Amino acid sequence: MTTLSSPNLADGSVLITGATGGIGEATVTRAITDGAFVIACGRDANKLEQLSSQFEGNIHTLCYDVTDEKAISNAFREVQKGVSAKKWPALYGLVNGAGVMSETVLAMTSADALKQQMAVNFYAPYQHMQLASRLMSRQKAGSIVNIVSQVGELGSSGMSAYAASKAALTGATKSLAKELAPMGIRVNAVAPGFIDTALTAHYDEKAKQKVYERVVLQREGTAKEVANAAIYLLSHHASYTTGHVLPVDGLFCP
């Protein structure tokens, strides 16, 4: 029988991509609050420096573009060097939080726009999971959480490219949960609905109200609420949960 070992977050390190975004930063904060050592990855060097100062001693920052395959490989080499040098604990968690969102109807979606959505929202998380699982398998314990989207689960007019990229990540999540279970690695996802972040900042009040009318809780979600769900799935509290997609959407009614 395979046992999915899930130590307390304080026993390991957690790599978080998109750490300089709203959900990513909230996830970094919550993970450190729960005792994890965080490897925060993002493109905004200034924000990473701020996080480093704020959480000194509990964080290591890496600045790179998640679409750069070589940079990803170098990042994981640095992670393992830090483990070997006992600068931080072995890698236990991965949160794939980096993402981009494009709202374009099919007729106006360029090949470049489609490729960008897939590169950031699917190819990058996939490569991170490949490399993270190799390290996690060494201690036969690990937990991966992918930030997908309710748009990918339910679809949305004018967002087919974004929906496709997130749906692909959902499919990989469910498949890898089965594939990596013998290695003691759980794989889950969080599917946010309409969340107050930079990705939705372009919505005016009228547009927001239209969204709220379709949400049972009649409001937008917060980055902290998404982070709480991600950390729950990452932690030992969800030790018997894998292959699950957890909606954080206030019950959206299409």
Score class of each variant (00 low, 15 high):
151 V>I: 15
119 A>I: 01
175 S>P: 07
108 M>I: 00
184 G>C: 13
113 A>F: 00
104 T>R: 12
213 E>S: 12
114 L>P: 00
137 S>H: 03
215 V>M: 08
220 E>L: 13
166 K>C: 05
194 F>S: 12
237 H>T: 11
155 G>P: 01
201 A>I: 08
227 A>I: 10
182 P>A: 14
229 A>M: 10
181 A>M: 15
228 N>M: 08
209 Q>H: 05
118 M>L: 11
203 Y>L: 15
193 G>S: 09
133 S>G: 10
96 N>I: 02
166 K>Y: 10
136 M>V: 11
104 T>C: 01
239 S>K: 13
106 L>Y: 10
144 I>Q: 08
151 V>D: 03
117 Q>T: 02
149 S>Y: 01
162 Y>G: 02
179 E>I: 09
205 E>D: 15
183 M>N: 14
175 S>A: 15
210 K>T: 06
223 A>H: 01
204 D>W: 04
187 V>Q: 14
195 I>K: 04
97 G>Y: 01
143 S>W: 06
195 I>A: 04
199 L>T: 03
143 S>R: 13
101 M>W: 09
211 V>N: 01
114 L>D: 00
108 M>D: 09
143 S>V: 08
125 P>R: 12
98 A>I: 02
117 Q>R: 01
210 K>H: 03
119 A>L: 00
147 I>D: 04
151 V>R: 07
207 A>P: 00
234 L>R: 07
229 A>P: 02
213 E>M: 09
111 A>Q: 05
155 G>R: 04
110 S>N: 00
141 A>L: 03
116 Q>Y: 01
111 A>M: 08
148 V>K: 07
112 D>Q: 12
205 E>A: 12
148 V>S: 14
178 K>C: 13
213 E>G: 04
157 S>I: 09
228 N>G: 01
191 A>G: 05
131 L>V: 03
195 I>R: 06
239 S>H: 11
127 Q>L: 14
133 S>A: 15
240 Y>T: 13
113 A>T: 10
97 G>T: 06
162 Y>M: 08
240 Y>H: 14
238 A>I: 09
111 A>V: 10
108 M>T: 00
238 A>R: 08
121 N>K: 05
191 A>M: 07
191 A>H: 03
102 S>C: 01
134 R>H: 13
109 T>C: 01
172 A>M: 15
179 E>Q: 15
105 V>I: 05
165 S>P: 04
106 L>W: 07
169 L>M: 15
112 D>N: 07
163 A>V: 11
99 G>I: 06
156 S>Y: 11
232 Y>R: 05
228 N>A: 15
163 A>W: 10
205 E>T: 10
189 A>L: 14
107 A>Q: 04
166 K>F: 07
